[in-house]
Nucleic acid binder design. Structure first.
Length: 385
DNA sequence: TCTGGGGTCCTAGGACCC
DNA sequence: TCTGGGGTCCTAGGACCC
């Protein structure tokens, strides 16, 4: 019975189209049809001219570090896309309009589209600001009609288009929502796997990243179909037993994960990449100021979200991109900037600092609700002194 | 002048306890 | 003259995702 139930699930994955860029176009409709990229620092916000028009920064004017967060489809046509360095992108699309990220606006529109979905299908799993999984198994309606209805509701609430994949599980739906982007609706069942899924590159599988893709390519495995054909033993020789087993399952479209409608925060962090690489000795004061500011912002975040933390970590990225982390678990949970700073400094002492630093970060984990960290966990003597 | 910032999960080893 | 076998907590690194 369990298997039958799993086989008849109806799971949607909804992904907003070029989300950050599309939200910006709501605010600046005059940019519609142009290549636009979002990313970089804060110093390139549009300038309002006396005649009421706006002057936008161009990608070619950008100086400094940073990557593209999102690009409109017109910009993607020029070869630029998410996670690409800004300097490289500027060479490919010098005339593209450049806008800074505006998370407050994205969060606002995110809430609007999720509320619109919830009005039709209440069981959905948050996967960040611009995508969700929706369990449609117990929602009335024919699948294609339901998909269209959700797309319409999202558009009416936000003015934005999204792409939806609907299949028996999260893995396949995630792949499918990407197949007909933008404004796509892709529905398939297990019988469609050989035709629709197997020709795709393994990288399309959510969970197969750059490293695994490269390793698989070295073994002559490029498509999901080739992965499905690979011997389990052969995969196990090159990947761990766990990952190898998972690879075989997903290549056959198997995925039993539930749509998870609740989740708890595990960690909160703040990090920053410097404008130029800094040296622990020569730039000691600058670094100390940055660390203090990070700890202070982290403390604000933790307190605002109503947590206390028992484990504080630091993260360093050196000029050669090597990442090092250190952490300390405290006897008592804390949330104050001074305590976090002290713990971070203890961690920092344990890192050899020969190379220049590119990034510094602070993280709080082992989170607890502050009420539980107080008297409830204290000895009886302290509770009743 | 390549390569952000915020997360999750997994692995593996050591300490410590029973 | 060898020293099992769990379990939990902690630390560090790495892959991956949005």
């Amino acid at each position: 019975m369990t298997t039958l139930f799993a086989d008849t699930r109806r799971i949607a994955h909804l992904d907003m189209d070029a989300f950050y860029a599309s939200v910006e176009l709501l605010q600046y409709p005059e940019l519609r049809g142009q290549p636009v990229v979002i990313g970089g620092g804060r110093d390139h916000a549009p300038e309002l001219l006396p005649d009421g028009t706006r002057r936008f920064a161009r990608l070619r004017d950008y100086v400094g570090r940073g990557v593209i967060t999102t690009a409109t489809y017109e910009a993607r046509a020029l070869g630029v896309g998410s996670a690409m360095g800004m300097m490289k992108a500027a060479k490919l699309a010098p005339d593209a309009v450049l806008l800074p990220v505006n998370f407050d606006a994205y969060r606002h529109v995110s809430r609007l589209f999720k509320a619109a979905v919830a009005s039709i299908a209440p069981d959905f799993e948050d996967r960040g600001i611009d995508e969700i999984y929706i369990d449609l198994t117990h929602v009335d309606g024919e699948t294609a009609e339901l998909g269209a209805r959700i797309k319409r509701a999202v558009f009416e609430a936000t003015g934005l288009s999204c792409s939806i994949g609907i299949t028996p599980n999260k893995l396949l739906s995630k792949i499918c929502s990407d197949l007909e982007k933008p404004n796509g609706l892709t529905i398939l069942g297990y019988a469609d796997i050989p035709d629709r899924i197997w020709p795709l590159p393994v990288r399309k599988i959510n969970g197969v990243g750059p490293k695994a893709t490269e390793k698989l390519a070295a073994l002559g495995i490029e498509t999901i179909g080739q992965l499905a054909e690979a011997e389990a033993g052969y995969l196990q020789e090159h990947f761990g037993a766990n990952y190898a087993g998972w690879l075989t399952e997903v290549a056959h479209g198997v995925d039993q994960r539930e749509v998870s409608t609740s989740s708890e925060t595990k960690s909160i962090s703040r990090e920053t990449t410097f404008e130029r690489d800094l040296h622990a000795r020569q730039d000691r004061d600058t670094l100390s100021g940055i660390l203090t500011a990070l700890c202070s912002r982290l403390a604000d975040d933790i307190q605002r979200k109503g947590f206390v933390s028992r484990t504080i970590s630091i993260k360093l990225r050196f000029d050669d991109f090597q990442i090092v982390s250190r952490n300390v678990t405290l006897p008592r949970a804390i949330a104050d900037a001074a305590g976090i700073l002290q713990a971070a400094r203890e961690c920092l002492k344990r890192v050899p600092l020969q190379r220049r630093l590119r990034l510094l970060g602070v993280r709080a984990s082992a989170l607890e609700a502050p009420g539980l960290a107080g008297p409830l966990l204290c000895s009886q003597g302290e509770l009743f002194p």
